[in-house]
Design a protein around this nucleic acid. Structure first.
Lengths: 145, 145
DNA sequence: CTAAATCATACTATATTAGTATGAATTTTG
DNA sequence: CAAAATTCATACTAATATAGTATGATTTAG
């Protein structure tokens, strides 16, 4: 029941791109340094975000990435599902075609459904913008003291 | 973010023992047959439940297992945490000693905390008794039609 | 004593995780 | 134009987790 580094890093990348967005393209190297993540691993992760259109890229020297739309468009759930796959706690909930013949009489399935709903309710109701705002409040707060 | 077979089977074993509880001891072989789970694998799982005192065992011929207390005493959360380990979505939440130095400024941590709470709220509020009742209602319903 | 059961532990095959490594393709810049 | 800087694509690897199997010791009823 753990979220892997792939998913967690992807969220941090999106937040990093949002926080450092000036319209310019940001290099993987910079993000990796700021976030303390392996450059090469980050390349793979950001490539997933790129293919999904969550970020835009420019190749070649002075190339890089920027967040595609406003941070309010990206929920944590979208990013996690993209990178981690389904957030459902059991495979039975993943596809319409359940291979399990027990589903009809499976009392536990209801619990997993409840659990899936609870998980989705959280991750689908926090956006990168929310995280960005909290971050900015935190920074503002740290100066005023 | 999946619950493994170990945890899911453990819940099913507890429900099976609750549903078939007559005070007699029930053999692994019977549970395995009813639940369609490998006997040997089930032995390992029920052994965890036994060591934790969730079930009682009698060794030797005519031995077996029975649920230790009333089914209302066992939440899904207890069983999953015992067999799966922590249900926290990230390791940062697992021990007091966070190895991560980013925690102070980690905006994502708040989301993971919310997620952990949501998960715990579900699994800690469903007991084996609840599942048992639903099962009995279902069976009663299927007869009356 | 024997059969039936739990108990304990070692082993195995597969998949996943968390990266590294290599190099091609593209674009700016000197 | 050449070199450097960058993304893009893919293959590889080490470590760990998952989902069991296998072997056999221990215990108890009959």
């Amino acid at each position: 029941m753990k979220i892997s580094t792939k998913g967690r890093y992807a969220v941090r990348v999106m937040l990093d791109l949002a926080a450092n967005n000036t319209g310019e393209y940001i290099k993987v190297k910079e993000i990796a340094a700021r976030q303390d993540i392996s450059e090469k691993y980050l390349e793979q992760i950001i490539s997933i975000l790129n293919k999904a259109g969550f970020v835009k890229s420019v190749r070649g020297a002075q190339g890089g990435y920027r967040i595609a739309k406003d941070p309010s468009n990206y929920t944590i759930g979208m990013i996690l599902r993209l990178t981690e796959g389904s957030l459902n706690p059991v495979a039975c909930l993943d596809d319409e075609v359940n291979e399990c013949e027990r589903c009809d009489t499976c009392e536990t399935l209801e619990v997993w459904k409840q659990l899936a709903k609870a998980i989705n309710d959280v991750v689908d109701n926090v956006t990168i913008e929310d995280l960005l705002e909290r971050q900015q409040e935190r920074i503002a707060g740290s100066y005023s003291i």
